[in-house]
Design a protein around this nucleic acid. Structure first.
Lengths: 144, 144
DNA sequence: GATGGGGCTTCCAGCGACCGGAAGGTCAAG
DNA sequence: CTTGACCTTCCGGTCGCTGGAAGCCCCATC
């Protein structure tokens, strides 16, 4: 299989697949003409990666998952731990976004949104004193 | 005010503030010794940006918001439109994460997580046939 | 046999939004 | 006069790709 074929079967762009080779994730042998010659196993791994990426796993997580997958003597606990850690990260991101969403939606509701210049959204961003209450935390907690 | 002062008052790292100058967001005048000499107005803008970033606005959004903020003849509708677009993006991200979360949490629950090698998480990622149902969509819909 | 078009190759550059570190200038206190 | 905290610039790296240029390769058609 050439790269175009595995791109089709995995749903990944060819560029991405080359990148995965570059970083040592899936390294196919080469045909005599220099083309990448993907074996079934390689195509399978690429589909595996595509699914893991679809669940938001990082490339390094994918590397770990792949090596667990290849290791028939693995412990499922190792996989589960990885997945749970990732789940916690997802939860943290959702929570962060929900907080943003909450503040922003209040601001959007408060803004009349017509041709006049006065705007509670800008007032809040500017930290105005006549804003009813401080909605946005100081940027000091922007850690990651 | 030197950069350290505005870093403190805005909560942004000095590195970030220099970066904002580099991309033309907030450009302070320079003192005779070459140090950046922030005026109150600059410090104010940096706090504004810090808050907007805290709400997840992109740098380009911040640039637009700043110019609206500086424009006393702006229409609040323009600000509201920007904010609503951003809100929709946040909603889309939340939804995407919630879908990931849903699939992943089912998998984590299904995995016994002990020393044995059999693992529904890996089975699902591999696209195994003995998985009860396909939980993960093909990577073809990984568009952005 | 030439030609054309698609696929493949490599390499280089850039995205967003910074962060880390090196090498060096400046300033106030002791 | 030295120390140490601050400031400066510049360069490289992060993550996960993506775009584009320049150049092979292969097959079909004329």
């Amino acid at each position: 299989m050439n790269i175009g074929d595995v791109a089709t079967t995995s749903g990944l762009p060819a560029k991405t697949i080359r990148y995965y080779e570059e970083i040592g994730l899936v390294i196919p042998p080469r045909a005599a003409n220099g083309y990448r010659a993907y074996r079934d196993r390689d195509a399978h791994m690429l589909r595996f990666i595509a699914r893991a990426r679809g669940l938001g796993f990082s490339i390094e997580d994918c590397r770990a998952l792949l090596s667990l997958y290849e290791d028939s003597a693995r412990a499922s606990a190792d996989v589960k731990r990885l997945a749970r850690t990732h789940l916690a990260e997802i939860d943290a991101k959702i929570e962060e976004l929900r907080e943003m969403r909450s503040v922003l939606s209040h601001l959007v509701e408060a803004c009349h949104g017509d041709a006049r210049p006065d705007c509670p959204i800008l007032d809040e961003l500017a930290g105005s004193k006549n804003s009813p209450k401080r909605l946005i935390s100081s940027a000091a907690d922007q850690r990651n």
